[in-house]
Design a protein around this nucleic acid. Structure first.
Lengths: 204, 204
DNA sequence: TTCGTAGGTGTACGGCATACGCCTACGATC
DNA sequence: GATCGTAGGCGTATGCCGTACACCTACGAA
């Protein structure tokens, strides 16, 4: 056939990711990506049907890099799940802007499916079956999605707790005190602490 | 002073919410809201600085309706927190399209702050102090945000699990089986089951 | 060498948020 | 009651956005 494509889908996704990493999600546009790959805007439509499909390519590029091989089976199952969760968090942490894309497209991502498959296997080995496993898996997904958003889409680091600490303590006594303690809890401890709570409750 | 305003901020927010409830979040535009209130597009800018501030008004209108009075103190603390969580989930469930707005603006919402104040109080009475309380509160927020998104922004109801159930079982054995069970778990059970797991783990 | 196909391009359209300048309705003042 | 300054409301224009459509052309097969 005539005229081979000059771009692979992966190259296209990488270009879009480069735009996002540089200019944020708001900077992602068909025009910007076209410029990044050195083509006209409309040329992109030879590769994807619409912008949504381009976004899909991006998250598949990112999440496809998550290692989904089961962790060493001689560790406790809670620790193995923590490993799986950390693998996702590490990768996403390297491209925080894509979090909303993951939320929007996760249910069509085969990478998410592969990750879930491994985690479901660990849960099965932990002795969770039927509805308990369903609830545990979805609960994990909910926590991860929510926590990652709180972490990356919140106000800049300590700013949020700073605002809270300045509240009239008369009206928000508990929040004022909580905010004071919050300054001593870093993102890692917060994330893993919440995850540990969830895992502890799942294990009954 | 001359010429009183013909709209209250609450009326403006209600108009925007009406647009969202009717046409979805994608239907929300300054033009659409202006038409809804019977004004020109630019007239809205006498009430808000930009679209983001309008969105802020909307979520404050919705979340302001959440009852934040502490639940009866003679119930176990887990049950009281469940009550607080359900109050939010019920209100949001009545306007599912606004979920992304909540995610985007939550950290500036005084309604969220008031809700958190009540929950922090319950956690304190439960005996959680310092970093434990910080982690518990943030973990709850993460779970709620994530779970509500999974519930309302996912593929239509059973469709997602349907797709999964059709996978090659050789490659996704655990997911195929999990999906079969998932069809028997409704949204309420899933949400409360995950929440119960988290609460159980927090209580140590 | 020819030819059909698919890759790449340019233009144009409708919709978006919003900056800017104008007109005017109105409460306060005399 | 007449006047006037102010702030509410509006029309227009700008520069983004995604993308439909028609076109040109590079290229592998014949």
């Amino acid at each position: 056939m005539p005229r081979p494509r000059s771009l692979t889908p992966a190259q296209l996704a990488a270009a879009a990711l480069a735009v996002i990493d540089r200019d944020g999600l708001a900077g992602l546009s068909m025009r910007a990506v076209a410029q990044q790959v050195g083509m006209s805007t409309m040329a992109l439509y030879r590769y994807v049907d619409d912008r949504g499909e381009l976004e899909q390519l991006v998250i598949e590029l990112v999440l496809g890099a998550v290692d989904t091989t089961p962790p060493a089976a001689d560790r406790p199952w809670q620790e193995r799940i923590e490993t799986m969760v950390d693998r996702v968090r590490d990768i996403v942490g390297a491209h925080p802007w894509i979090v909303p894309l993951i939320v929007a497209h996760r249910h069509r991502s085969v990478s998410v499916l592969r990750w879930s498959e491994t985690v479901a296997g660990i849960l099965a080995e932990a002795g969770l079956d039927g509805r308990k496993r369903v609830i545990a898996l979805r609960g994990l997904l909910a926590y991860i999605i929510g926590a990652i958003q709180l972490e990356h889409l919140g106000p800049l680091a300590g700013q949020g707790t700073g605002v809270i600490a300045d509240l009239p303590p008369a009206e928000f006594p508990h929040m004022a005190e909580t905010a004071r303690h919050a300054r001593a809890v870093d993102a890692d401890e917060e994330f893993h602490g919440g995850l540990a709570n969830l895992l502890r409750g799942m294990g009954v």
